[in-house]
């Protein structure tokens, strides 16, 4: 393995997890750089996970000021009014995250995701965004793809009791334990834009209804020019109309996207902490798999719904090319 040995301090601190993924993986983790944007419940859970896991550095982007609403699912914001006078959410979270593990460099980057140039994205091994519009997701994903080295892209969204993760690892190589041997494997991922352009009718049977429902809401918000999550029960009629249009255009039966599910998704826009913990945990695991090169990463969507308790993986890619 390239690079220096783990320090004594690192070996002691990460003892239990080194027993899970080995010293090589820990070394790769401690040299990795991660960017996150949109410091809401799920991303905060994710940050905590990878800071505890011992990544090299973590950069936070979120210029919003701390509000009551932000407090509700963000355990990194101390419930103490004096602590964050004039600070942005990213700055407050940064202070708290440093306490979780002093060996990780946590910092804040001010500005808007779309304004950062390619050279900015070059610095990272993984980029995780949340609360972004349809257009923004495509844009950031493209920037990651254009970067001179491979930058993994993750998008995560939670709507009430449901959550979704999208993963683009481009061309990912990993090692897999098969009986006694270690096998080298490779996966081709589509970009977010490519995945979105896969016609619904060519998707395999029984793709989870959450996939379609999330797309309907995403398109609705995009068409209305709203930010992610700016939706309420009053939009139900509009959402149902759009669903009908999309289903017709894709020759998909309208019954595959239950109205009750759409209603549930737009009613509870707030975050539900246990769902954040679960989605943030899965996302943390996926980023660690990617950085360490150990374990089979998921391709390319993950869904969780409290109602049935299932954590489902769907491969949304062009069946002909696989990407």
């Amino acid at each position: 393995m390239d690079g220096e040995e783990l320090t004594e301090q690192e070996t002691a601190l990460y003892d239990r997890q080194i027993r899970v993924w080995g010293a090589d993986a820990q070394r790769r983790l401690s040299k990795s750089h991660v960017l996150v944007s949109g410091m809401k419940g799920t991303v905060v859970e994710f940050c905590k996970n990878i800071v505890l896991a011992g990544v090299g550095s973590l950069t936070l982007v979120d210029d919003r000021m701390v509000t009551e609403e932000a407090l509700s699912a963000n355990f990194l914001i101390p419930p103490n009014d004096n602590a964050y006078g004039g600070k942005t959410i990213a700055e407050v979270c940064c202070d708290s995250l440093k306490e979780f593990n002093p060996m990780v460099r946590v910092s804040v980057e001010k500005g808007d995701l779309s304004s950062f140039g390619l050279e900015f994205y070059d610095k990272f091994d993984a980029v995780v965004i949340s609360c972004c519009s349809f257009t923004m997701k495509k844009l950031i994903n493209e920037k990651c793809r254009k970067s001179s080295k491979r930058v993994a892209f993750y998008n995560v969204d939670c709507r009430g009791s449901c959550g979704e993760i999208f993963v683009d690892l481009q061309n990912h190589k990993y090692s897999k334990q098969k009986l006694e041997d270690t096998v080298e494997c490779q996966l081709e991922y589509p970009s977010f834009e490519e995945a979105m352009s896969v016609p619904w009718r060519v998707l395999p049977n029984k793709v989870t209804k959450l996939y379609f429902a999330m797309r309907v809401i995403e398109r609705f918000e995009d068409a209305e020019g709203r930010n992610a999550g700016e939706i309420s029960i009053e939009d139900l009629a509009g959402v149902l109309n759009l669903k009908k249009e999309l289903c017709e255009a894709n020759s998909l039966s309208v019954s595959l996207i239950p109205d009750t599910l759409l209603e549930r998704l737009i009613t509870s826009t707030g975050e539900f902490p246990p769902v954040c913990a679960i989605i943030g945990g899965i996302l943390g695991q996926e980023v660690i798999k990617n950085i360490s090169g150990k374990g089979v990463p998921l391709k390319n969507f993950f869904f969780f719904d409290v109602m049935d308790g299932k954590g489902i993986v769907e491969d949304i890619s062009n069946p002909n090319t696989g990407s």
């Binding site: 859970e45 945990g281 695991q285």
Partner: peptide, 11 residues
């Protein structure tokens, strides 16, 4: 022990 699994389990 890893943090990610603990988080999922806690949720």
């Amino acid at each position: 022990a890893v943090a990610t699994t603990n988080a999922v389990v806690a949720g």
